[in-house]
Design a protein around this nucleic acid. Structure first.
Lengths: 185, 185
DNA sequence: TCGATATGGAACATAAGTGTTTCACTAGTG
DNA sequence: CACTAGTGAAACACTTATGTTCCATATCGA
């Protein structure tokens, strides 16, 4: 089977992310094996382990950036915008999980820089919603963003472990992040 | 300097947790060095890397179990109970972070078992609050627990990275988890 | 068919972590 | 003082991951 280099790189990145999510210490042999490719071929596309991790992180950030920017431009109520962001972010959670894994990734300053660039638009969404009176203004903007993203990751965990249904996830995230878990009086 | 074996084990566990949180792949030499101890001594107390990780996980679970059980018996409103739990869990977040690191820890079934035992009382708290009418009943119990703990971890991250003040954290967690981020109409 | 490209398999050297053992030293204890 | 427990330094064998190189093979296009 021969595929275009583009397709192969895509496949390698996807498989690598999946394997390294489960075990951040997986060897390149394991990664290559999971991708159905020899270690030699993997090395041809990503010369070193760090190069693979770097490409993986950039790819993940590309996706998040695209998802965020796309969702942020959605016209509608705060709830609708949040729904769009959650729906865009949720499928990416699994592939993003490995970003939390360790210093191997975050010791590259360029990636930390990019992360701030990516998260920026979310704060802008919060700012607009606060100004529009639909979000509480007594909470720090960064905290609102943190809570929202944390809820998305929690939902991704719940889906993975079978605690909640995938089809319910986006609704749960938006509803819970906006209105909380307390009974409405 | 000579200390009691008890104290030394405590110090080794604390330092190991701190180092392995920052870099889950840190070598035992790094861990020992950070503890101001030779690798030989570290090996005398924890024969293998896995033994250290196991002890670390059990120690972390001990703390969480104690914190949860203590807080769960707090008499008071749902808000007060949640505040107690958050206050007990928050200082543990940093030392617990390494539990999320990978298969190295969770491939031991005994630890997975314990985790469910530890998280159990939290679901019970939610159940009681739902029965008492102070928590929404249209949300799965497990999801409420997930949201609450995720909010605690988010606050711990925020403290670590300087986005929120430590003294505000517990209040933010409880307030946000209960009432959400939307403006109240 | 010929040639270019990409791959797989294998071997190799290197590096690093791990677990073990041995020996010398120090600080308390009798 | 002698004894003991605990420690650190060093050396060791073993394993594993990594990065590299070489060669045979297969596939696609000219």
């Amino acid at each position: 089977m021969t595929v275009t280099p583009e397709k192969l790189r895509r496949h390698l990145l996807d498989t690598s992310a999946e394997v390294l999510c489960r075990d951040s210490g997986a060897s390149l042999a394991q990664v290559a094996g999971a991708a159905g490719v020899s270690r030699t071929t993997l090395h041809r596309h990503y010369a070193t382990r760090q190069a693979l991790l770097r490409a993986l992180a950039h790819d993940a950030l590309d996706r998040v950036a695209a998802a965020v920017e796309g969702s942020v431009r959605v016209q509608g109520s705060t709830s609708e915008v949040f729904t769009a962001v959650a729906a865009a972010l949720l499928p990416l959670a699994d592939e993003l999980r490995f970003l939390n894994l360790g210093a191997e990734v975050w010791d590259l300053p360029e990636l930390v820089e990019r992360w701030y660039d990516v998260a920026g638009p979310l704060e802008e969404v919060v700012r607009r919603a606060q100004a529009g009176g639909t979000l509480r203004t007594d909470l720090p903007r960064a905290w609102v963003v943190d809570v929202f993203t944390a809820t998305v990751w929690a939902a991704a965990d719940g889906i993975r472990d079978g605690r909640i249904a995938r089809r319910d996830a986006v609704g749960l995230v938006v509803d819970t992040a906006l209105h909380g878990t307390a009974a409405r009086p």
